[in-house]
Amino acid sequence: MNGIEFILANMLAAATPFLLAALGELVVERSGVLNLGIEGIMALGAVIAFIIVYHGGSHAVAFLGAGFAGACLSLIFGVLALGFRANQVAVGLAIGILGQGLSALIGNSYEALTVTGLSKITLPGLSSIPVIGGLFTQDAIVWLSLVATLAVWGMFRFTRLGLVIRAVGENPKAAHAIGYPVIALRYGAILFGGAMAGLAGAYAATVYTPLWADGMIAGRGWIALALVVFGTWMTGRVFFGALLFGAVSLGGLAAQAQAVPLNSQLLSSLPYIVTIVVLGIISSNRRLLKINGVASLGEPYER
């Protein structure tokens, strides 16, 4: 298998943790709320899913458990950010620290253990095409995350719910005046975002690299947050951003396999360096951010 084939075959799987978490955060931010705790919520989802699979549970149950755990932790975020009107940046950091601590505590006796991942589904015909065939040989969660991308895109594009979420994010006072339940919608978005981050963690720890180690999320939650900015709050662009990061995290491995001498620390840093560079390029286009950005992002809402 050459480098290109390797990247094409594994890009979607590598992108899936980024994609799931970023889709959730996209909905949260569209509603005007900034949840910086994604990294910790992913870690909690990861350890819960890992433990369920380790003790013989199915992946379906593991993902349900991880999604539920993620929603529960994000509910604490919601109560503080919406109920107590606390500073969203600080609450997000607190939830992140709490989630990472909880995951380390819960996973204490599972450190460095492994489980069996998910088998890949081949599409008859498509999967046997040379070079790009690997692209069509993916596990069920990858396919489902593509469906989720379409669903989020369709929700914002075609449905009333999508329109209302955007209205709440743009101008909560006006949305309230028209009669939309601002706080309830924001709670809903936060729970959705938390559940998606939990699923993203579950994929990372039980499918992509089926093992548990403290700190294994390794900044992927933070990159997911950056992806929402890269995508300028548009579903399609967030999807392509996630693919880019999937490819970046594989590109180094592929280069190493081709005997290109690459330092392994530089390799690990590559996604972080790319994040900083891309963030600089996208953000410097102030007009783009202003047009697509969410006006009330991070502002506490007071009636």
Partner: peptide
């Protein structure tokens, strides 16, 4: 770490 995280959560509340 759990203690530290929960301390900040309660403080913000």
């Amino acid at each position: 770490r759990v203690f530290q995280g929960s301390l900040l959560v309660f403080y913000l509340a």
